[in-house]
Amino acid sequence: MQIRVESLSHIYAEGMPFETVALEDINFTIESGSLTGIIGHTGSGKSTLMMHISGLIKPSSGRVYAGGTQIGLKTKESREAARKIGIVFQYPEYQLFEETVLKDVSFGPKNFGFSPQECEEKAKKALELVGIDPDEKGKFSPFELSGGEKRRVAIAGVLATEPEVLILDEPTAGLDPRGHREILKIIEQIRRLHKPTILLVSHNMDDIAAMADQVLVIDGGRLAMDGTAAEVFARREELASMGLGLPSTSSLLSALAARGMEIRTDIFDEDEAAREIARALRQD
């Protein structure tokens, strides 16, 4: 589904002494089936933006469209469209509540009115997708699992609703390197198998550079940049002024370029970067 956001603004606690303008006049379009990376400093409004796209909060002004239907209205079409948007919140493991892993993952499909059999099927499929064996771990209490497993079960809980748009809000926050890699693998897997539109909020520039077709930079509630990873990460000074860094490859290449080396800086793949450095060294 294509996502379109039009002059979206959001003010928390409007009219109160501590009101916060979280989003201000945001406009962008995301193509169906693409992966969009969203980066920005903590408190810049990324999570608020994601909640708008999933129709969980109402804009102070502006509109959000998913596949041409406006999201967040009380109409039947709007609700139908919102169902096709799944959101994995920051630290999603805190939403687990059922007695067993399988029941918890079935919660979404059950709410969407599928039969118990269909629910179980969808839950098992989702668990397999996140690399958890439903026959082995399905009967466990979700509270017995390890941190990384809990996170993956919570993600499965959203995947079980078979979303056409999948929003992941900092899905790797607080995980060890292995847990981090596992989540990335899951994202790749979902892309290959189901081709949903994915929105990935992350502080890890390497992940964004490696995966995103489009990158949105949010700064103080405003959309500061919108382009490909190469376009966005080329604006190094601006990013630095927002407290954002570069992917490690471009960071290294930029440092070399700053020392006078004739070298490209828009490379996000390690091997390719190594080849470029070797080439530049031979030239010197």
Binding site: M51, S54, L56, I57, G86, I87, P92, Q95, F107, F112
Partner: peptide, 15 residues
């Protein structure tokens, strides 16, 4: 926390 969990469950269709 309540607000957060409510939204997370609403996104999974909880009413």
């Amino acid at each position: 926390e309540t607000d957060r969990i409510m939204k997370a469950q609403m996104a999974r269709g909880a009413d």
